[in-house]
Simulated scan of single mutants.
Amino acid sequence: MDSIKKILGIVWILMAAVVAYYGLTEFGIPKIMSDKQEDHVFGWIILTILMPIIVGGLVVFGWYSFTGEYSEEHI
């Protein structure tokens, strides 16, 4: 079971990279460069608030899973 947790930890970290790339290229930067005011607000909210929370959470969860923090030995 611990080997599955380590593999899924890598998957979570890779998912964080994909979410960061997709969030920047599809939601963040194009919305900031738009001419509409509501797009500017949405783009800045995505870049400054949501992206760090989402990507940071995925990376931390993946790292803890990869390093074995959720194994039975740590309890």
Rank of each mutant, 00 (worst) to 15 (best):
K5Y: 13
G62P: 13
M15G: 08
D2E: 14
I75S: 14
I45A: 08
G9R: 04
K31G: 01
V55T: 05
I49D: 02
L58S: 01
M15K: 04
G57F: 03
W63K: 08
V11Q: 00
G62K: 06
G56K: 10
A20M: 07
G57C: 05
L47A: 02
Y70I: 07
V55E: 06
E73R: 13
V59D: 07
D35C: 05
L50V: 14
F66C: 12
L24C: 01
G56C: 06
I45Q: 06
I4P: 01
K31I: 01
D35H: 12
V19M: 10
Y22D: 03
K6T: 05
K31H: 12
G23L: 01
A20N: 08
I49S: 02
T67P: 06
F61S: 07
S65R: 12
E73N: 08
K36A: 15
E73A: 13
K31S: 14
L47V: 06
G43Y: 07
L47T: 03
F66Y: 15
Y64P: 00
W44V: 11
S65M: 15
A16P: 00
E73D: 11
I4V: 12
Y64V: 11
G28L: 02
D35I: 08
I46D: 04
Y70T: 06
T67G: 13
F42N: 04
G28K: 03
Q37L: 14
I54M: 09
T48L: 13
I53P: 05
V55L: 01
M51Y: 05
L58R: 05
V59C: 13
V59P: 09
A16C: 02
H74L: 13
G23A: 03
V41K: 10
G43L: 11
G9P: 05
